[in-house]
Nucleic acid binder design. Structure first.
Length: 335
DNA sequence: TAGCCACATACAGTGCGGGA
DNA sequence: TCCCGCACTGTATGTGGCTA
């Protein structure tokens, strides 16, 4: 889906890559390119880009020993998690009497809704992904951490994902809005790798533990036509009865939940690529039968898949819709 | 709290025809 | 040719009762 209204590039945006034009905090203040209130709390934004679910900023902060403590808006901090990659420099984060140090190459998950303070030891460059908590919840991932800050432990998967993220950030400025939007969804789907590597989550067998784990499995296997109750239960090492019982607390069955996600995914696919054959869309969303897919799609969206695709193919209608969505989007705005 | 079992039923899959 | 709608059948799922 195109989001032209999201072209919210930060100060100093131009034709060059975001990292060709990183500007230190002092020079940014002197040139008056930033809102002073934001400079005071978080350093200088060298570039930024947002999709509906993820908002990416590159923060360049220069003052040694500067305390960047926590003047983040309460509303935003409650809605977004921060995945931070330290690109250069060193910093410490203090929370609950515990101080954690981070250097170039380190990654961390931060829940800004919990009180913390940040101190920079030297000129530091951080890439920050602001991740919608709601979007994580929709994907069955928990964001309710016991502590505010969790270092992400390096595994091969984490290293691969970090490399992908950095590549994505590198080409951010030149990528189309549609691509940024799609990649945003893909990175959200992959966030479980980061969250699990942070050790932030409890693992357990109660309903509270089963449902998030099951929804994560469902999310990862949306396109799998063989996805069924037995497979999910088997993967979780619980009985089908326990799985069903746990899910009942959410007001729907596991497979109903899967269909909801599949139909949402189908909607995105049709909006992004209206020329795609309905058969292909059905297949990519885990429906073995196009007829069945078509029926469920109409029930959910009030129109057939082809009508839905045609609706999004018209650029004028599309942009009007996007303008509305942009206004309603919950992406954070930097003060 | 979790597993097992039996039963009812909702729905996925299939085939076919019709319309654009 | 592609997509949608309809009808039918078999299967997966949900539910309740019981037990450990």
């Amino acid at each position: 889906m195109m989001h032209k209204a999201f072209r919210g590039r930060g100060a100093g945006s131009g034709q060059r890559s975001p990292f060709d034009r990183q500007i230190g905090i002092e020079s940014m203040e002197q040139t008056g390119q930033l809102n002073p209130s934001y400079v005071a709390c978080s350093g200088a934004v060298a570039s930024s880009r947002r999709s509906a679910q993820i908002f990416i900023t590159n923060v360049e902060a220069g003052s040694e020993g500067r305390n960047l403590a926590t003047a983040v808006s309460r509303r935003r901090s409650e809605r977004y998690l921060r995945l931070e990659i330290v690109r250069r420099g060193r910093m410490t984060i203090e929370q609950n009497g515990e101080t954690l140090g981070f250097r170039a190459g380190d990654m961390l998950l931060l829940d800004p809704s919990r009180k913390f303070s940040r101190t920079l030891r030297e000129s530091t460059h951080i890439s920050v992904l602001h991740i919608s908590k709601r979007a994580l919840e929709d994907r069955g991932m928990s964001y309710r951490f016991l502590r505010a800050c969790h270092p992400i432990h390096e595994t091969e998967d984490v290293a691969a994902l970090r490399a992908l993220l950095l590549t994505f950030i590198h080409y951010l400025d030149n990528a189309s809005d549609a691509l940024v939007e799609r990649l945003g969804h893909h990175f959200l789907d992959l966030m479980d790798v980061m969250i699990e590597s942070s050790g932030a989550l409890d693992s357990g067998r109660g309903a509270k533990a089963i449902v998030p784990r099951a929804t994560r499995i469902i999310t990862c296997r949306l396109a799998d036509t063989n996805l069924n109750m037995a497979g999910i239960a088997n993967e979780l090492n619980v009985s089908i009865s326990s799985l069903t019982r746990a899910f009942r607390q959410r007001g729907l069955s596991p497979m109903r939940y899967a269909y909801e996600l599949r139909l949402e995914h189908a909607g995105r696919l049709l909006a992004q690529t209206p020329t795609l054959a309905i058969q292909d869309v059905a297949c990519r969303c885990g429906f073995a039968s196009p007829a069945h897919f078509s029926r469920l799609f109409k029930k959910k969206h009030g129109m057939t898949p082809r009508e839905y695709a045609n609706h999004h193919e018209s650029p004028q209608e599309c942009e009007a819709t996007e303008a509305t969505e942009a206004t309603e989007a919950t992406a954070p705005r930097e003060a």
